[in-house]
Structure formats: C-alpha cells, structure tokens
Simulated scan of single mutants.
Amino acid sequence: MVVDIWRKIKQKEISPLYLLYGTEAFLINETKQLLLNHILDEEEKDFNFSAYDLDETPIDVALEDAETFPFLGERKVVFLHNPTFLTAEKSKEKVDHNLAKFEAYLKEPAPYTVMVISAPYEKLDERKKITKELKRNAELVEAKKLNEHELKNWVKERAKSSGIEFEANAIERLLTLVGTNMFMIAGEVDKLALYAAEEKRVDVHLVDALVARTLEQNIFTLIEKVVQRRLDEALRIYYDLLKQNEEPIKILALLAGQFRLIYQVKELSRRGYGQQQIAGYLKTHPFRVKLALGQAGKFTDEELANLMELIAKADYQMKTGGMNKSLLIEMLLFRLKK
C-alpha cells in the first residue's frame, strides 16, 4: 500500500525509479512531495531537481539530464509527467520518444538520480514492453481511490504524524461532512490537529464545530431534514446556501443527483448487490453508497418516483424562465415534505 512506500521514504530507503500510477491525484502529489523533501535540501532543489512534460519534451532530453552528475550535491531528482506511451490510447504526442533508450535506462538507472514517472491514468497498457520493463524495475505506487476502511486508516495515520488521535466516530463524522476528496480531508485533518494540539485528541464535537461543509454535504443534510419532516431546518440550510451565492440551478442539480443515487442504490440493493458492487456499477465511492443506502430506507419506491418527477418539473420551469429560480426550489421543498 502507498502508506508503506511513504514509510520507506521517510526512513530514507530510496529507490532510483518510481512509477506512480492511478487516478487519486492526492496520493501521487503527496508521494512526489515526500520524495523531493526527503532527498534534496531546500538549497539543492534549485540545481538538482527538474521536471519534464512528456507531451512537450522527448524522453531523450530527460534521460540526458538523469545521466548527468548532480551539481553541488550527491543526488538529483527528475520528474516525468504525462507518459501517454504507457497507455492504450491513440497517440496524441507532439514529440517522438526513443523508448528503446528509455528501456535501456530502466535496466541500469543512474545511481545518483531518482527518477519519478507520474502516470495519472486509470489503466496502463500491460501489453507494451515499456510498461512491463517499468513495472519490473521501478518501485510501484498505485494511487487508487481508497475504500472506506483505507480512508479511515489514512486519516488515523495523518493525524498520528501530527501527534493527534481521532476518535472513531469523529473520523466517521469527518468523512460524512467532507466527502472522499483527499485534498479536502487532508486540509481538515491538519486544521483539527492544530486546534487539538494541547488535548491531543479529536472528538465528534470538535469536528462538528470546525469542519467546513461542502455544498454536496449541505445538500445531503438538507435531504436528511426533508426525510425527518423538519422543513424549517431544511429551509434554513437552503437560505444559507443562497446567502453564500450558490446558484439555485446548481442546488437543484445536486438535489436531483442525490435522489437519483438514492433511487439507483435502493434498486440495486433490492436485486442483491452489495455496497462494493453498487459502487463499482455506479462508478462512485463506496462511502457515498453507504450514506445513500441509509437514506434509501426512508423512502418508498412511489415516493422516490414522485420526488424525481417534481424535481424534473422544477428543472424545466427553471430553464424555461417561467418563475423565480430561488422561489421554485422553496416551493419544491414544501412539496417534498408532504
């Protein structure tokens, strides 16, 4: 797992080649930053760090740099971005790459250079020789989307590195409020760690007090209030969103998306699909499925069908300009309560 690679880097167990691949941008960025900070001092970065966009620069140029001795230091770091030749996509490259030379370098990398290949793609073409060579010779970091269990463990590890401990229900609440965007989670964990520096512990009350709600989370909470028939609280959330200059049409789109997810999750669950299977089928994070499953049990099929019809009518009226947009959603919320 990526956390194990991070631990090795922090212990100065550095490899000459790294392949970072997958669609979780946070894990790729965090790994690159860790490598850079644990290999080079600040004053060395100006001389011994370079990055190449392989959509614009031939691989030969990067290899020549990698094989050049570092200046005023023992090691250098070379980042390679956008290696589209590792995928099965049709080539859109503006430059020609000497992949035979690259393959030769992979077999005998320069001992004073750490080369980091960043491939932010869902899949690599395993049939290609260059992909096979890279996977055979490089330290692999798979930056995949973390499941709920992995995400919670990652929050614990990040908090632990700041000398802070999260209570279990505090982590659950954090993910419910923020969602699964790791950049946002990292920011909130770091903020909570600062506030809890003396107590060394984060509980659910601190999370509720300090964590910023995303627009999506506000919509989720708004729906919860509708489910509980607390129209006054649902309207309060809606009015707060308007004060934050959120567009009614965007709010409506998110309402539609959440109710659509609830409907799909309810149907797939009835057919016997598990949480992970539903997440894979709908191409969404399992944690979102878990939350939607909790809401799905509070609606009958008829209620959900009626809600989707009401939202569709509101969307049509909003786009044809027949009524005030903010008033349309207000009326919709009154009707959802029934």
Results as ranks from 00 to 15, higher is better:
residue 92 K to F: 04
residue 67 E to A: 14
residue 205 H to V: 09
residue 14 I to M: 09
residue 13 E to C: 06
residue 132 K to P: 00
residue 41 D to P: 01
residue 139 E to Q: 13
residue 249 I to S: 13
residue 33 Q to E: 14
residue 292 A to M: 10
residue 290 K to Q: 13
residue 1 M to Q: 12
residue 337 K to C: 09
residue 158 R to W: 03
residue 93 E to C: 00
residue 286 P to M: 07
residue 128 K to C: 02
residue 337 K to E: 06
residue 171 I to V: 14
residue 288 R to I: 03
residue 3 V to K: 15
residue 54 L to D: 08
residue 176 T to Y: 15
residue 299 F to K: 10
residue 187 G to D: 06
residue 207 V to R: 10
residue 75 R to D: 09
residue 6 W to Y: 15
residue 178 V to G: 04
residue 228 Q to Y: 07
residue 177 L to V: 13
residue 200 K to F: 01
residue 111 P to E: 05
residue 19 L to C: 06
residue 68 T to A: 11
residue 331 M to I: 09
residue 101 K to Y: 01
residue 313 K to P: 00
residue 272 G to K: 12
residue 96 D to K: 15
residue 321 G to R: 08
residue 105 Y to N: 07
residue 188 E to N: 05
residue 154 W to I: 05
residue 36 L to S: 03
residue 219 I to H: 03
residue 296 A to K: 08
residue 258 Q to L: 11
residue 257 G to C: 01
residue 32 K to E: 13
residue 304 L to M: 12
residue 219 I to W: 09
residue 42 E to H: 03
residue 247 E to T: 01
residue 248 P to C: 03
residue 162 S to E: 14
residue 299 F to L: 10
residue 163 G to Q: 05
residue 137 N to C: 09
residue 102 F to S: 02
residue 290 K to T: 03
residue 219 I to G: 00
residue 87 T to Q: 10
residue 15 S to I: 03
residue 242 L to T: 01
residue 152 K to R: 14
residue 2 V to W: 05
residue 308 M to G: 00
residue 153 N to R: 14
residue 27 L to G: 03
residue 105 Y to P: 05
residue 26 F to G: 00
residue 230 R to Q: 15
residue 67 E to H: 07
residue 287 F to C: 09
residue 240 D to N: 15
residue 6 W to H: 13
residue 152 K to Y: 12
residue 220 F to N: 02
residue 217 Q to A: 14
residue 293 L to W: 04
residue 184 M to P: 00
residue 119 A to Y: 04
residue 72 L to A: 08
residue 170 A to W: 08
residue 192 L to I: 06
residue 304 L to V: 02
residue 241 L to W: 00
residue 191 K to S: 05
residue 136 R to C: 00
residue 43 E to I: 04
residue 46 D to R: 08
residue 41 D to W: 01
residue 86 L to W: 09
residue 214 T to N: 05
residue 192 L to W: 10
residue 49 F to I: 12
residue 99 L to H: 03
residue 269 S to T: 14
residue 296 A to D: 07
residue 153 N to M: 12
residue 239 Y to L: 02
residue 21 Y to D: 01
residue 15 S to Y: 13
residue 177 L to R: 14
residue 127 R to F: 01
residue 167 E to A: 10
residue 32 K to M: 15
residue 82 N to V: 00
residue 254 L to H: 04
residue 60 D to G: 05
residue 335 R to A: 10
residue 197 A to S: 14
residue 169 N to D: 15
residue 51 A to D: 12
residue 192 L to T: 02
residue 134 L to G: 02
residue 85 F to E: 11
residue 334 F to E: 10
residue 198 E to M: 10
residue 203 D to F: 04
residue 241 L to I: 01
residue 177 L to F: 15
residue 173 R to F: 08
residue 56 E to N: 14
residue 49 F to H: 13
residue 164 I to E: 01
residue 242 L to S: 03
residue 126 E to P: 00
residue 144 K to T: 08
residue 142 E to I: 09
residue 44 E to I: 02
residue 55 D to H: 10
residue 28 I to C: 02
residue 116 V to L: 04
residue 333 L to F: 06
residue 257 G to D: 06
residue 79 F to M: 11
residue 311 I to N: 02
residue 227 V to L: 11
residue 4 D to Y: 05
residue 174 L to E: 07
residue 153 N to V: 07
residue 262 I to K: 08
residue 102 F to T: 02
residue 72 L to S: 11
residue 324 N to V: 05
residue 303 E to K: 14
residue 97 H to V: 05
residue 144 K to G: 08
residue 111 P to I: 00
residue 272 G to Q: 13
residue 41 D to Y: 06
residue 65 D to H: 11
residue 3 V to T: 12
residue 214 T to R: 11
residue 123 K to L: 00
